[in-house]
Amino acid sequence: MFALLERLCLVLRAVASAAVILLFTVMMIAVLVQIGGRYVFNYSIAAASEIATFSQIWLVLLGSGVALARGQHVAIDMLPAKLPLPLARVALIMIAAVIVSFLWVLAYGTQPLIKMGAFQLSPALQLPMKYVYFCLPIGAAYMTLELLLSVIQRWDNPFPPPEADPDPEEAI
């Protein structure tokens, strides 16, 4: 069961990571093309900034799942780090429960947006907005999965001290 969850999560993480890298690249190229087109060729692509903005929204929702996996969401965890293990585990579960509830609300609340997004078109691309709104439930689902995995993985050491990149230049 645990192994299955872990494997599923790792596959999804690879997919999400690839998607996030692609989205950032698209964002960057869209903005650079917009500048180049406008300044060098005096030709503007109306859709470029919309493509970039929509990529950004998807990037944040999927990237937040990756950040969860990497423990990059900022928390004030001085106090729980001092708790004895049983209490720390309780805290870990409570936090997870709170996060899952919020993510559930986030996903659930997207329903009316997606319903409207079937006929609501984006201003420039004239793309049905539901394709952008889908990032909320999908991002929430992926984050939930990463969260469950991290609870299992952190069961014996719920609040490890934060790790810095020891030396980014050496790490690469």
Binding site: F24, M27, S49, A52, Q56, V105, G109, P112, L113
Partner: peptide, 24 residues
Amino acid sequence: VPVAIVSQRVFAGLNSFTLMAIPF
């Protein structure tokens, strides 16, 4: 107020071109 406002506001908070300065 329906909880859908949560999803809408989270989306709205991110739906901004100028915010892109952060990742860049």
